[in-house]
Design a binder for these strands. Structure first.
Lengths: 95, 95
DNA sequence: GCAATATTTAGATGATTGTCTAAACATGAG
DNA sequence: CTCATGTTTAGACAATCATCTAAATATTGC
């Protein structure tokens, strides 16, 4: 698991916003780009960071490249964060 | 809540290691310093970042300054991360 | 094959970051 | 009060980062 890459990826607000948008389903680069005031090149850089962290998956679909959340690593993320939190402070308590 | 500061603070491996150490109870700067191969000044910088994110609390105790986890914000952290994760991927499922 | 569209790569730039050394500040002991 | 100890502040430096513009690559439609 790429713990360092994951936390690094989450450190940027634009990347967190991208992840949030992808919760409602996959989007291609252009669609995501329309949501942020940033050049396509910068967006592409963020995609690369998210991919290196395995947080998103890509799939070419005709002329577009579609981004979607990698839910497997999302579960890893949950685990990594819970690991930072003392048992007593966890919501819901036990596990 | 200082979402950006929290995620930024977690992006550094030394700071995550500090948080992990503090799970077993409060420690003063010197004790933490003994655990890392880093100068006190650098440590102090990390403490400041963690404090800005409200992840740790400090209390002077005689000659030492004691660091402890701020469990309130630790709960906020849980919430912030869960917020990034699609409902279907959450461990344990529901909430 | 060519033109248009979608995305990435290359290279540059300014800002932020983690680290260091040296100096300053704060506290308790004698 | 002064000294030793513990911690932070100041200032500098190299590395990393987010962003940009310009150019390159990939794909589809004609």
């Amino acid at each position: 698991m790429k713990q360092q890459e994951v936390f690094r990826a989450l450190a940027d607000p634009t990347r967190r916003a991208i992840l949030k948008r992808l919760q409602n389903g996959a989007l291609n680069a252009g669609e995501i780009g329309a949501l942020f005031d940033i050049t396509g090149a910068s967006l592409s850089h963020h995609f690369m960071v998210l991919k290196q962290a395995d947080l998103v998956r890509t799939e070419r679909r005709g002329r577009n490249i579609v981004y979607s959340l990698n839910s497997t690593v999302m579960e890893d993320l949950t685990r990594m964060v819970l690991d930072l939190i003392p048992a007593g402070s966890r919501r819901g308590g036990s596990k």
